[in-house]
Every structure is written in structure tokens, then in C-alpha cells.
Design a binder for these strands. Sequence first.
DNA 1: CACATTAGATACGATTGAGTTCACTACGGC
DNA 2: GCCGTAGTGAACTCAATCGTATCTAATGTG
Lengths: 218, 218
Amino acid sequence: MPAPPPGEPGQGSPATRRRGEGLLRAIYTATIDQLAACGYSGLTMEGVAASAGTGKASLYRRWASKDDLIIEAVNHVLLGAADLPDTGSVRDDLLDLLRRTTEVVASPTGCAFYALMRGNPSERDFAMLAKKRLMQPRHALVLELLQRGVERGEVRPEAVTPLIGHVGIAMVSHLIMLNDGQVTPDDLVLIVDDILMPIVRVRDDQPSKSSTTRSLSG
Amino acid sequence: MPAPPPGEPGQGSPATRRRGEGLLRAIYTATIDQLAACGYSGLTMEGVAASAGTGKASLYRRWASKDDLIIEAVNHVLLGAADLPDTGSVRDDLLDLLRRTTEVVASPTGCAFYALMRGNPSERDFAMLAKKRLMQPRHALVLELLQRGVERGEVRPEAVTPLIGHVGIAMVSHLIMLNDGQVTPDDLVLIVDDILMPIVRVRDDQPSKSSTTRSLSG
DNA sequence: CACATTAGATACGATTGAGTTCACTACGGC
DNA sequence: GCCGTAGTGAACTCAATCGTATCTAATGTG
């Protein structure tokens, strides 16, 4: 139950109802929590209303359906900032970015977004929205970070690919799934040092063409 | 609706009901399909019965609850074979294994298992069971394959880690999620050649200690 | 063929949730 | 303080589902 906002100064009577923005925020949060807890199929208007500490009538006054509510909640819920780190080294940038990405992915909001992205084809619109808000900005940051590494001579130009841009977050979400929502700081260091850096960094044996990669493993 | 089995020879009257094993198989399949379609929360006994073309009474005759049914279905549903490929090169072994893993992960059964693994803490027992049947055998195969590559001099010994063993399947499941269930053969080749091989293969600049990895990226 | 068992269809009472309505009252602005 | 609006709680009808029970008939075995 959210704490009621303080009453007017000098009036001594605290307000007992939320109104407007405060209630909206509680409803969005409740929607995300329900999505994280039981996915799209399991989310009910009753559950959202109960979790938000309000009544169904307040939901239906604003949204005609569960779908409308979800779309708006996904659009408006707060996500962590998506900024490009600048530590001076690609390794440390990747680590910093991966930490921040992990915080978001491991949060209830992250869980809710993943639930939408993994839904079945009838839930495609939600999936696209979740990808647009959660995945695309962070993916773009990784590629930008790698490109900057290329310009610094730290990263192979051939490593700046959409696929390689997904490795970090793929590993994090996989570990979260396998380890009951837990990823340790050590895990992140290992992902960067043992997986990402071997892939992206300029090598001493670096030829300029990726076709040589195949003949080496031939 | 499953095709009815042929009638007795010479009798001309096809059977209209399944019995025993045939019905069990249909129920397991229906359970997995429902899990894949609407997750644990959304799965109903009515839905499973309808999908299996049977009645609820046949379900309740065998299982006291939805949970009991799910546990048994997860235990008994067929998964693709988990065999160690032997193509003569680590690269081709990884590709072969990744193809087979992808077939399973992208199937309705794979979807159902992932739905269970990503459920909330109250569904932990299901998650553990799904990990045990789907993830562990395939993870073990990757490590075994990498270890064999070490013995052949193709793979760095430091690359045979639990974390690196997860990279392939993490990437595949991530792409499936992002691309509406689709992963192309080209994607798999890129995962092997651009991600897995750079991580695992013996390098021309190969020192024997992994601590040098960090100072190179420092 | 006779018989025991199982499958399938249906109905039932209870519960949950969707969507709606209503009465009361809290709240903010004037 | 007055008034219009929004929030709250409860009740309502309808649909879906749960778990149970019953009946008919399909099926396999001796």
C-alpha cells in the first residue's frame, strides 16, 4: 500500500486518496509487477487493481482493455538511463555498460519486458514495443562503444556487428534465467574478459580479413 | 485432432478412442503446447483436455492437479537426441551441435521449457526440472566437445569453462526471442565463426596464462 | 461372446475474473 | 464554502474454469 502523500501544511488532515499522476504511477508499477509475476496470460485487471491499491472502475475509466493498459504501462514505466560510458578503455566501458544493463534486466521491469518479448505470436505488438524500449537503445550503445574502440585501435572493425552487439545481454539474461534471477559482479567480469574481449579486441595475429578466421579453424 | 489408429484388420471399423499410451502421449503433447502458448499461469486443465481431444475426467483420473500433470509431461516429453558430434574439427562440431540445439530450443517443447525456466519463484521446481532435462545435457556436451578440442590442440584449455559453455545456447535463445522464433542457418554459422571460435581457439599469440588476457585489454 | 476397465461427453456447484453500474465521498480549483 | 470531477468500494451479470460425479459406450482380454 503506497504511503499517502502529506496533507496540506497546517491542515493536519493527511490526504487518503491519490489522484492523477500519483495514481497513474501506481497503476503502471502494478501492471509491470503483475507482468513480471505471471506474464501476459496471467495478468488480470483485478490483480493490477489490487496491486495498485485501487478499484477496477479507476482502471476502466482510463483504459478500455487489458491490452491498452499494458501498452501504456510499457511506454511509460521508467527504465534505467542508457548512456555511453567513457572510462578510457573498451574493457572497462563494456563492464560498466553491462552492469547497468544487468540492473535493468534483473529488475521487475526487465522481467516484465522479457515476458512480453517471449510471448506467443498474438502478443507481437507488445514484444515489438518491449524490444524498442529495452533492447534497441542498449544494443545501439554497445555498437557505438565498439565503434569508438575501433577508432581507438582497441577493437577489430569486423567485430562491430549486430550479432556481436547482442552477446553481452544474451549472456546476462541467460544467467539470470539459470541462476534464479542472480548474476554476480564476478560473472559480469568473466563475461567481459573471457567472452566479449576475445571476440572484439585487436589481435597480435590480426589479419585485416575475416575470411582468414575460417581457414584458421578449418 | 490426432488421427485415429487403424481398426482391426478385416473388421472395417476404425477405433474412435485412444487408450493407455496413445492417450498419454497426446496429453503430454497438449500440455507442452499449452505451456508454450500461454505459460504456466495461462495453462488450464480445460485447455489441455481440449487440445488433447479428451475429457477432463481422463486427466483427473491420472493426475490430482495441474502441477502433477506438468511435472510428468516435462519428464516424459521427447527431446531431441543429445549426442556428441564428431566431424573432425571443433568448428564443425560446434556448428552441428548448435544446429541440433536450435531445433530443440525453437520447438514448442523448447518454448514450454523456457517458459518454465523463466517463471517466478513459486515455479522453481518446474524450472529445475526443465533445466535438468534441457540445459544440463546440452551444456555438458559443449564442454565435452571443447575438452576434446583441447586434446586435439584446437582449443585453449582456459576456454573450457561453465560460462563459455553457455554462449551458444544463450545466443540462440536470444535470437529466437528477438526474431519471432526464427534463427537462420547463416545466424548459426556466424555465432560459431564470429563468437565461439574467437573465444575458444588456440591463438598464435597464445600465452599459457589467462591473466595475460586482462593486461592485454587493460 | 462376455466382462471389466477405461474413455469421452455432459452436467453440476463453486470460484474467479471481465466489464459495468451506482452511491458515496475525497479532492482541487474557484 | 461550493461545485464539479475523480476515486473508492461494492454489487451485479455473464463467461470461463475447477474439480467432481454420472452415464454411455468403446476397447482389450480371456
